[in-house]
Write a protein that binds this DNA or RNA. Structure first.
Length: 733
DNA sequence: TGGTAGAGGCTTTTT
DNA sequence: GCCTCTACCA
């Protein structure tokens, strides 16, 4: 990729002074422009790296940008600030936060921690007066307020009804809870910097003077609070360089405003606008398909991508009966691509919702193609991992009541709900932390409880002693050992093996983090993992097919892309059918998915799909009809008309006859055999892996064919008998 | 207090 | 379909 920059790209790189807005179409080389510009600033203009600040959307993007810079200019990134808004916020708050009352060792609450805090608040409310939604829905509402720079007071004032007013009241309590626990949630990592800058203008001025050049990637997905931060940091020199694509704005649900792009020139008078429309990624056919789809959106600046990479092949169409068949067809398509010579690492399978990954994985794990799934139940969201990390957070910050609540009786040590409740309400009325209540208030309790509280406090002080001067991995090990956590897992979970592996993985993560760092402390490790996203750990070194959501695919590219589940209700999603704005965002999401592909694109839908346990009929995504016929190899079934009472039944029945002529075939007999052979061959003594129960050893084999019964003794304890044909089980090699 | 079983809610997307 | 919460019993 050592092509010279084109004229437009050069223009963007060299326009160093004043505000610049780059409208960068998909695949138009925007990352290259960003890195070349930074290099240009340092090498040609003599700017010192620490005077440059660049915001990226993911840590992965930050890492890649640094790597590309280092390649041509070793050492350049040492003092450069490149990171996500959140990481940059933390960096500033660690050194300046105390000015606005944030202690240095604050905890960072992730979405689950925040929801736990909301839950805790709700449980203390006497009467909540009915339907206000789940704790996490409320947390989302609060988050949107925060991202719109709304305080609890403003939220209460602007509330449109009683329910909103009550949620606003919860918001107020939530903020108090965070402060009491010396914790910040994700949004605070940015919001508190904005607050700091407004309370202490001199601090803002210091940073604004320091950063002579501010660069922002994925500008279309910034929200008001991020915009406030950008604006503050660029306020002195006004050398703001924003790169984005209004057609790829897919985060409005997180408060992002495309207006930031559309109104940029008003916000920053004198802006130079550069448009990058030459695409260096995809074939003309893929671009034509994508261009036609996105052209249906009204609210856009409008652009037309072109390429000189040639026409390429038509997009493949996979039509399947249901989601299981779809998964088989997707795996089939992957296999044929591999047979054509594409590396698995150059193939991605994209879908709208994480829930769709299950059906795909069920098939992929029996297939012979290596794969990785990004997202879904994330590693750091697993129960056992969260337990261990809650111990860590609590040790690093004893005021952290949410974490304390999580661990106080895990593993069970006789400090159940009623004991905890009485201690926490004591803490509440005395306005102290729960730990303080444990220390001072235990004399109210019965003797047995007093003893148990004492034992817990002893455990805590022992662990804190260790945490004081040991590196993070040693602390994690001590937590696991001293609490007897693995034993607890073994006794309570049939899949203890997998869970123990996860727990060990936390130690490994701490170990990996510690390598080559000065600060190996628990607090530093916690900060690191609080900010990692799933895409950040995306592994493209091993040759694996990647499965992930369309959102996660933003900013990535692959030779081959398969988009699964292209049905109305999924793309566009049911919940986004109400307004034009929502519908257009769904279209952009589809557009983002299509434009990830360099050479081959497959579009897939199923006629039926299980949703929350119920089988539902679906029709092909309305967006498919927006793709010109000559771009697709095959014909999309026309969406079902709603007329006629009989339609209803048809939706629910697998009518083999109504599959169109270009329907993807069922797997051929040989392929299927190949597929089932793996599950058919079990022998006594063989090691197996079961989805729910983990590893085990085969003790007995009876019957044959579909009636093949396999008895397994699991490593995690327990013996079970399965019908091999149906059980989610496979032999381990 | 803790274990179990059944009910109910949930899934859009994430730093 | 799966996970979490709640109610009830040991």
């Amino acid at each position: 990729m050592a092509f010279p920059l084109n004229d437009r790209q050069l223009e963007a790189v060299r326009a160093t002074e004043g505000p610049v807005l780059v409208i960068a179409g998909a695949g138009s080389g925007k990352t290259r422009v960003l890195t070349e510009r930074i290099a240009h600033l340092v090498v040609e203009r003599g700017v010192r790296p620490h005077e440059i600040l660049a915001f990226t959307f993911t840590n992965r993007a930050a890492r890649e940008m640094k790597e590309r810079l280092e390649k041509n200019n070793p050492g350049i990134t040492d003092r450069l600030w490149v990171g996500t808004f959140h990481a940059t916020g933390v960096r500033i708050l660690r050194s300046e936060g105390e000015r606005i009352g944030i202690q240095r060792r604050f905890s960072i609450y992730d979405a689950d921690d925040s929801a736990d805090l909301v839950k805790e608040i709700l449980s203390k409310q006497v009467v909540m007066g009915g339907m206000m939604g789940s704790p996490s829905a409320m947390r989302d509402r609060i988050s949107r307020w925060k991202n719109d720079l709304m305080t609890p007071e403003m939220a209460a004032e602007g509330a449109s009804d009683n329910i909103e007013r009550k949620v606003a009241a919860v918001y107020r309590e939530y903020e108090r809870g965070l402060r009491r626990a010396n914790a910040l949630d994700f949004d605070d990592l940015i919001a508190k910097v904005v607050e700091l800058f407004s309370v202490h203008p001199e601090v803002k001025e210091r940073y604004a003077r320091r950063f002579r050049y501010v660069l922002v990637d994925e500008f279309q997905d910034t929200n008001p609070i991020q915009m406030a931060l950008i604006d503050a940091l660029a306020s002195h020199h006004r050398n703001l360089f924003a790169v984005g694509d209004d057609d790829q704005s897919i985060y409005s649900w997180r408060g992002a405003r495309v207006d930031h792009i559309l109104n940029f020139e008003e916000l920053y008078p004198g802006t130079k606008v550069v448009r990058l429309e030459q695409n260096y990624r995809s074939t003309q056919t893929i671009l034509d398909a994508a261009n036609h789809v996105i052209a249906h959106n009204k609210g856009r600046k409008g652009k037309n991508l072109w390429t000189d990479l040639g026409k390429g092949e038509k997009a493949g169409l996979l039509v399947s009966m249901d989601e299981e068949t779809e998964a088989i067809n997707v795996l089939d398509a992957v296999k044929s691509l591999v047979a054509d010579g594409y590396s698995p690492r150059e193939i991605a399978v994209l879908y709208r919702t994480n829930a769709q990954s299950r059906a795909l994985e069920d098939v992929f794990k029996l297939g012979s193609v290596p794969y990785q799934i990004i997202g879904g139940v994330r590693f750091y969201e697993r129960m056992e991992v969260r337990d261990i990390l809650a111990y860590c957070k609590f040790l690093a910050n004893p005021a952290d009541d949410v974490s304390l609540k999580r661990i106080v009786n895990v593993p069970p040590r006789g400090l159940g709900k009623s004991t905890y409740e009485s201690l926490s309400s004591m803490a509440r009325s005395n306005d102290t932390t729960v730990l303080e209540a444990l220390r001072t208030g235990a004399h109210f309790l019965a003797t047995a409880q007093k003893k148990r509280v004492g034992a817990f406090l002893e455990l805590v002080s022992k662990l804190r002693e260790i945490a004081k001067d040991s590196p993070a991995p040693r602390v994690v090990e001590a937590i696991i050992a001293e609490t007897g956590y693995k034993e607890f897992l073994r006794q309570n979970y049939p899949d203890a093996d997998a869970r123990i592996e996860n727990v060990d993985e936390v130690v490994a993560a701490a170990e990996a983090y510690t390598q080559g760092r000065d600060d190996a402390s628990l607090a530093a490790f916690l900060e690191e993992i609080a900010l990692v996203a799933d895409v950040d750990s995306l592994d493209d070194i091993k040759g694996q097919v990647t499965l992930m959501t369309l959102h996660n695919a933003k900013g990535l590219e692959y030779d081959c892309v398969i988009i699964a589940g292209l049905e109305d209700g999924l793309v566009p999603h049911y919940n986004s059918l109400d307004t034009i704005e929502e519908l257009e965002e769904e279209r952009r999401l589809f557009y983002v998915g299509m434009t990830r592909a360099r050479k081959r694109l497959f579009l897939s839908y199923a006629n039926m799909r299980r949703r929350m346990g119920v089988i539902e009929g679906g029709s092909p995504s309305r967006f498919l009809a927006e793709i010109p016929d000559e771009c697709v190899d095959g014909a999309v079934d026309s969406p079902r008309s709603g007329e006629g009472a009989g339609d209803f039944d048809e939706l629910r029945l697998p009518f083999p006859g109504r599959r169109g002529p270009l329907q993807r075939r069922e797997p051929s007999p040989t392929e299927y055999e190949d597929y089932s052979q793996e599950e058919a061959s079990y022998a006594v003594g063989m090691r197996i892996f079961h989805n729910d129960f983990g590893r085990g050893i085969v003790r007995k084999v009876e019957g044959s064919g579909e009636n093949l019964r396999v008895t397994v003794i699991f490593d995690g304890g327990g013996e079970r008998k399965f019908l091999a044909h149906y059980a989610p089980m496979r032999p381990l090699v």
